[in-house]
């Protein structure tokens, strides 16, 4: 009797399935083959990204931030079997359920938690790369936050990269939730308080805001 894997998401790079792995609720991320790419290059890129993603998850856990645990990595098949984090709600859904006026306390609490968590991974030089409210799982009762989808993660100590990471989140928040300017300020204050060199990252963030995510290559 083979266990079944239910397709839950399909992106540009991978398919995501939900199922069981030796009894444990598991998410399977499969980077599929890209037919238009030269096979040897495709293989190289996929396996590099697969291992990069798995290692980022491990690094995140080591920094004391909740992330899916890795159960098994199959580089040949480009598979990552990881823990299915079910301890909370996707932050996006959670925010949508909150009324900005009557739940302003809850909103402020979430933003503080998010800021603190990002400061923790940035202090460990881990850049998430795709910080959006869909990639965070929030548990209100314990007020803890888990990060998921480390597909674009990398290690860097540059304030520039950390600033861009925050900028991506700011843009994601602005486009999906109302009254985010005030909320993002709360998030940044909490980030600054928790982070070792929050000031320089936030100074970079201001720079990034002026010019956009991509660095200008002039001269």
């Amino acid at each position: 009797m083979a266990s079944t894997w239910e397709l839950i998401k399909q992106g540009a790079e991978a398919k995501v399935y939900r199922g069981k792995f030796y009894g444990a609720p598991t998410i399977l991320k499969e980077r599929f083959q890209k037919k238009y790419r030269v096979p040897s290059l495709d293989k190289k890129l996929s396996s590099r990204r697969t291992s990069q993603e798995a290692r980022s998850m491990s690094r995140c856990l080591k920094l004391g931030v909740r992330a899916p645990a890795v159960y098994h990595v199959d580089l040949e098949k480009r598979h990552i079997y990881m823990e299915d984090v079910t301890s909370g709600l996707i932050l996006k859904e959670y925010l949508n359920c909150l009324d900005p006026v009557s739940h302003s306390d809850s909103l402020e609490n979430v933003m503080k938690t998010v800021g603190g968590v990002i400061a923790m991974i940035h202090d460990g030089d881990l850049i998430h790369g795709d910080l959006t409210t869909s990639n965070m799982i929030y548990n209100e009762a314990e007020s803890n936050l888990a990060l998921i989808d480390f597909g674009l993660s990398f290690v860097s100590s540059l304030a520039e990269d950390k600033g861009v990471d925050l900028y991506v989140l700011e843009r994601a928040l602005l486009s999906t939730h109302p009254d985010t300017e005030r909320l993002f300020k709360i998030l940044l204050d909490s980030y600054r308080a928790a982070s070792k060199n929050g000031d320089s990252v936030i100074a970079k963030l201001d720079e990034v805001r002026m010019r956009g995510r991509k660095r200008l290559m002039v001269g």
Binding site: A54, R55, K62, L63, R66, A69, Y71, L75
Partner: peptide, 22 residues
Amino acid sequence: KELQVTTLEKAVTTAMSMKHLV
């Protein structure tokens, strides 16, 4: 620090999976 956010069993399988990753 790690065990504050995950279980021993999960930390162990994560460490096992890191072998052979480039």
